[in-house]
Design a protein around this nucleic acid. Structure first.
Lengths: 339, 339
DNA sequence: AAACACAACGAAAACGGTTTCGTGTTGATA
DNA sequence: TATCAACACGAAACCGTTTTCGTTGTGTTT
């Protein structure tokens, strides 16, 4: 076991000062050619690598970014992380992932842990509990300290920071319009309670499309589940009673489960009843029939978020100007709707 | 924007020394009741929180653990991360996630970045390229420096460290046996090349079950794909030609895709042809029919890995004794096999 | 020969804590 | 009243860097 070598070790061994070693390794003009070569050769031989922690303490930059998300076992968040990771890594940053598990308290604790010097900035998506509660003091405290924050997907207007979202309203609008254009006239929506910012926006898009059509909105065709958790009973009852000919779901699981239910009752998809979900995950792709979805481009979202954050972290200027980037969703047509 | 307050700030304000402040905040016996109260009150008022980086530098402990995995958009790895995160968080550790994207070089770069003081230990699963190449010097360098490493799922015997795996051979054995017991006699295997340690073990279990039965192994019923990537053509051709009555797949995607193919040809699942996959993800649960799988208990695996790592990190003793924990897989029976 | 420029290096402060080892003050003891 | 322990606190080293600001020694200039 050979322990890590430090500047001090090199200095002692070569009988020069620590400062000389430090400068020599940075190829400083101050140091003679000869000394630089000796130091560099020695450093290479003993595989010297500067200690990140010491450097962080000195520059007050950790090159770490903290990512706080509600859930990692979820395709969308997972792709966002991948996007963040790829981009951040390319710029020399590491990613510290914390899970709030949809809990307000965990979100607060995680942020406090990281905000004490461990990271240069946050990228996060709010837990459902936080959105339900509407308490954003932990975010404000962090931004007050001058730590940059980028909020994505599940955001709030109550915090001044950069934001990245997809146009959920537009996505739902287009999906609903697709149904309308295909002559469907009993178009249902399976969503969650409005406290989730995304569900709210999607519901809005759904309503807008219907209002613009001759169909109009029928509130009884909207099923609001308390959370993103599956509630098989509620969905089954809803579908049995309403018998819609098209269903828009705010995620893929609701959609795929619904498809199975109606298939069991003998309906044909998409002829008798068509489906569109949100999130372009493995489930949609390999479901039977494959599911048409509103793709959220998670990886792109992660990439954009990371870019915004790192740009802000590295900019000296203390501009207090924040922007919200709105990504466009795309409809990925598969077999659950008519082509 | 109120910047973070430091010990020095408190000391100046209260006209005491930095050491006194430090001790007062730790409730040291050395400091008078009176002074402690003043300091603590002041600290609370200005929301003092010690700087993690400074503490890390001092104790040479970061309370961060590095997780290096091949891919995050993959249900199994995702559940492992969740297990690691939950456990590590409970013990006050943060998790830094790095993705190798199945690339040897990325794996090396990531480890080097983290090994310079950023983390106290590694939890990792090898990239396929690394396993194919058989080059583990980056791991050896890290362990040589005294940094603890826990390898999970995709492991190697060439590195001395703690390991956590599930008994893949046993899982495949039981799955295959299930088919045999149900009277299937043309049991196929869709797997990947043997360089992936898990595929190798699963193939072994499959062969063992068949060898023990009257059926025996028929090598032509084994399809070896070059990687975990989907190859729709290869699978289609294979199934068309061999017409098996049972198929074991090393992941869920191969299985779900295969089910769709045979369904399109009019076969009934599980009567005409039964399926079992590996990994208990959303796909298996919501596929139609739902897929019987060998569950790998990713979350448990993450938890166990994190415990092993942290225990080692926090143990003073430099015991050079390593253990390999073998978790038992379970067969989750769903509709793709007869009940 | 005095004055100066310059090359090459070292000392020390700083980042923000922890911890060891004094040191001055107090009150009790002999 | 001299001695001593206990108390309460401060100075300084340390973790591993970076960086500023000297300080040498040499050679060039006038």
């Amino acid at each position: 076991m050979k322990a890590k070598i430090t500047l001090k070790d090199i200095a002692r061994e070569l009988e020069v000062s620590i400062s000389t070693v430090s400068k020599a390794l940075k190829n400083s003009e101050e140091i003679s050619r000869d000394t630089k070569e000796r130091v560099q050769a020695f450093a290479k031989l003993y595989n010297y690598k500067p200690n990140n922690i010491a450097i962080s303490l000195k520059n007050k930059r950790t090159k770490n970014i903290g990512v706080v998300i509600p859930d990692i076992v979820h395709h969308f968040f997972t792709t966002v992380i991948r996007g963040i990771e790829k981009y951040a890594n390319a710029r020399g940053y590491n990613v510290i992932v914390c899970l709030s598990e949809e809990s307000f308290d965990k979100e607060v604790i995680n942020m406090e842990m990281l905000a004490n010097g461990s990271i240069d900035g946050f990228i996060m998506s709010l837990s459902s509990e936080t959105q339900a509660k509407g308490d954003y003091n932990h975010l404000k405290e962090v931004t007050d300290q001058g730590i940059p924050v980028v909020l994505f997907d599940r955001i709030t207007n109550e915090v001044d920071c950069d934001k990245v979202i997809i146009d959920d309203e537009l996505g739902a609008y287009r999906a609903t319009k697709k149904f309308i254009d295909q002559g469907k006239n009993k178009i249902a929506l399976i969503t969650t309670d409005d406290y989730l910012s995304v569900s709210k926006a999607r519901t809005k898009g759904y309503r807008k499309a219907l209002e613009e059509s001759k169909l109009g909105v029928n509130d009884s065709l909207i099923l609001k589940l308390p959370s993103m958790e599956m509630d098989e009973e509620a969905i089954k009852t809803f579908l049995d009673q309403k018998e819609p000919d098209a269903v828009l779901c705010v995620n893929e699981i609701f959609a795929v489960y619904s498809m199975r239910l109606v298939q069991e009752k003998g309906y044909k998809i998409p002829e008798d009843i068509a489906f569109i979900g949100f999130t372009d995950g493995v489930l949609s792709k390999y479901a039977n029939p494959s599911l048409t979805v509103v793709a959220q481009h998670g990886e792109k979202m992660g990439e954009v978020s990371a870019k915004m954050l790192i740009d802000k972290v590295e900019s000296e200027a203390e501009e207090e100007t924040y922007q919200t980037k709105i990504l466009e969703p795309t409809l990925v047509i598969r077999d659950s709707v008519m082509h």
